[in-house]
Design a protein around this nucleic acid. Sequence first.
DNA 1: CATATGATGGACT
DNA 2: GTCCATCATATGG
Length: 193
Amino acid sequence: MNLISLPRTFYLKDTEKVARELLGRLLIKKSGNKTIVSRIVETEAYYGEKDPASRAFTTPKMAEPMWNEGGNTFVYMVHNNWLVNIVTAPRGIPAAVLIRAIEPMNNLPLLEKNRNKTGFLLTNGPGKLCQALGITKRHNLLDVCSKNSEIFIAEPEDNEPFGIVSSHRIGIKRDLKRKLRFYIKDNRWVSKR
DNA sequence: CATATGATGGACT
DNA sequence: GTCCATCATATGG
């Protein structure tokens, strides 16, 4: 499998657009001599000052990576779970996309070992997928544009068309009127209908 | 040092 | 649907 990483410019757009366009792309995680390939099936977009649900709004000090130029990971912990985001937008504009669910494409036994679970419970949630892939604080601020990174995003080889469903974001106190959660229609790995 | 918080997950009714 | 364990941070005394 010849993996092609997405260019930096992909991430410099509006975070909602990036959140939509990340659906169906591949999340690559290297683990020892293995390369774990997964398809992104659910994302959420977060903004800065005008988004009361964003950590750039509530705890800006913790969310400092969100001000970086797009194209890096941003990993932080909530309720004893690591969550992985992709920073978006040009430097100085706080924004990121939370990866909420993925569809594993290979190395299932490794994911099952990491999670001590099987089936959809492997990766149908932002904390679950980090546990399955072994993502921790150690993977904060990695360049997802580089194939040399332990984590990067790649273009899928076959791009079957799919529908996108949008909904309100999950698990936050104050959401915006805009629907900023996106997932692949009828995909069985999404965290919640 | 003490305590509060949460972009969750899992167990339970 | 409800309840709560768990822990990295932030914040206050």
